[in-house]
Amino acid sequence: MFRGLSQKVYDLTGINVYLCHQCGICSGSCPLVKSMDIPPNMVVRMVQMDMNEVLNSKTIWICASCFNCTVRCPRNIDPARIINALRIIKQREGVYAVDLRKIEKLEELPQIALIAASRKLTG
């Protein structure tokens, strides 16, 4: 059943993306959807369609892993983890979303922001 991207996501997370019935609840629950270029349900759809373009979206870096969508998804398929898996695919290719040496106001940020960002946004 799985081919390209959907297979990769399955390998990383054990999630079967084809369970999604595109209800859109994830996107409706997402606190950051307005800053995203592709809403979460669309991301899931694109994985279903094995569309590698989704790997270039900003969404995969903006998602804060807040798990709002996860708690509410009626099909229990955990969109947050799917998005995180896409991010991990990029990270493992060596793509970093931020340059740690160029962060604004780094001295005043709490460490946890920096540590979280380096784990989520760098490889």
């Binding site: 740690l100 962060i103 780094l106 001295e107 460490q111 920096l114 540590i115 960002a117 380096s118 760098t122």
Partner: peptide
């Protein structure tokens, strides 16, 4: 510590 992190942010990794 943040001074050092701002010069060597990779420590957070």
């Amino acid at each position: 510590g943040t001074t050092i992190l701002s010069i060597f942010p990779e420590i957070a990794r």
